[in-house]
């Protein structure tokens, strides 16, 4: 069970790192730098702050769901 928990923590670490980078990083800390890059009518930093971070959050949760379902089966701690 310790290995299951460790793998879980690893997954959390990676996903939360991305969570931090897209919002606090791209959306706030480096927003000026990213704003020099343009995608269509958007400045990239502004896009991350008002759209991109939210899309990434959704993807992160679904990656977590898939990854944990797999891990549960692997360690035989799933519910069915």
């Amino acid at each position: 069970m310790e290995r299951y928990w460790k793998k879980n923590l690893q997954t959390l670490g990676i996903l939360l790192f991305i969570w931090f980078i897209v919002s606090f990083g791209f959306g706030i800390l480096w927003v000026e730098e990213l704003n020099t890059i343009r995608i269509g009518g958007f400045k990239l930093g502004f896009w991350f702050a008002q759209q991109g971070a939210i899309y990434t959050f959704v993807v992160l949760i679904f990656i977590y769901v898939i990854r944990m379902n797999k891990l549960d089966k692997e360690f035989n701690v799933n519910e069915d």
Binding site: L16, F46, Q50, I54, F57, I61, M68
Partner: peptide
Amino acid sequence: ISFSGYDGSVYLMGWTGGYVLLALLLAP
């Protein structure tokens, strides 16, 4: 957001990013 422009992003990121914490750290 209309009246604060970019600054309004705090609400957009703040009120959605919490769900990542909820899903990964608390809910299950």
